[in-house]
């Protein structure tokens, strides 16, 4: 099929803008990765290839501590947020649109509607009022809260796309409500649950504003630690750390998107 001489769908310049846009989108990522292999101590002066900064990063105890804090908080927050979001989504997708359900949906999505800095200030004041001093407890609670809508949205979308017929068919075929959930509903919405959990995990790992506000000794997360490094000056080691983080993020994103694409194909 050849395009007609006068293709009305083409706009001159649009493709060029798009090409430049994608270059611009990936330029910073490429620059960070490129300079992470720079031998020179100065970030932007290339003198030769080296992996020494990766070695330095992996031996950095403070970095590893921050990573441990971030992972612990992210795993707990992901599990908590996904479980809470799944329960709420099950209720909200199966209910008529009554007032209380609309309100509940808004409440679940509340962290998306408030500026994060306000939320951060709010939890800071709350914890100071409650006298909770344990940094990990504070972080985990706050992260679970702002991760919940990210877990909720894909699960909700998946449940809304799923006809009630499937659950009814399961019950019609002698499955108890629990069996129907375990063997039909859950496997069918699994891609949504997985995507939601991935999003929640990434959001928790990425968070700076709240974690910085709640920062105290022993609960410094990875982004907060990186911020403190940046404040001290850019170094190639920082580039190496950033590169590692970029690769992990991209891997998680690719897995998540590939899985949801596969699920879409399966259900067609």
């Amino acid at each position: 099929m050849s395009a007609p001489a006068h293709d009305i769908r083409r706009y001159p310049g649009a493709r060029l803008v798009t090409a430049v846009f994608f270059l611009w989108l990936y330029l910073p990522i490429a620059v960070v990765i490129w300079f992470s292999f720079n031998e020179n101590r100065l970030v932007s002066v290339w003198t030769g290839f080296s992996t020494q900064w990766y070695a330095a990063a992996l031996q950095n105890k403070a970095l590893m501590d921050a990573l441990r804090v971030s992972l612990t908080v992210a795993v707990i927050a992901t599990i908590g947020a996904t479980a809470i979001a799944l329960m709420a989504a099950m209720v909200l997708s199966r209910a008529p649109s009554k007032r209380i359900y609309k309100l509940s949906e808004a409440v679940v999505n509340l962290p998306l509607m408030l500026p994060e800095i306000v939320v951060a200030v709010a939890v800071l004041i709350l914890f100071s009022q409650l006298g909770i001093a344990n940094g990990m407890v504070k972080l985990t609670l706050a992260h679970t809260a702002f991760c919940t809508p990210f877990a909720f949205l894909p699960i909700r979308a998946r449940l809304q796309g799923m006809s009630r017929d499937f659950e009814e068919a399961a019950q019609d075929l002698y499955a108890t409500p629990l069996t129907a959930f375990r063997r039909v509903t859950l496997p069918m919405i699994a891609p949504g649950v997985f995507a939601g959990a991935m999003l929640a995990f990434v959001m928790s790992m990425d968070d700076f504003i709240t974690s910085n506000m709640l920062n105290s000794g022993g609960s410094t997360t990875l982004p907060v630690y990186i911020f403190s490094l940046i404040k001290r000056g850019t170094t190639p080691e920082l580039n190496a750390i950033s590169t590692l983080m970029i690769l992990v993020s991209l891997a998680i994103a690719t897995i998540a998107l590939a899985m949801s694409a596969r699920a879409m194909r399966r259900d067609l």
Binding site: S163, D165, F166, E168, A169, A170, Q171, D172, L173, Y174, A175, T176, P177, T179, A180, R183, V184, P187, M188, R266, D267
Partner: peptide, 27 residues
Amino acid sequence: PHRRRVNTVFQSYALFPHMTLAQNIAF
């Protein structure tokens, strides 16, 4: 519904997409 010896052929068929045909029938 799950205690009634009655089965339904749904308008949308509602075949479980994550199961094979044999698994669907065995459910």
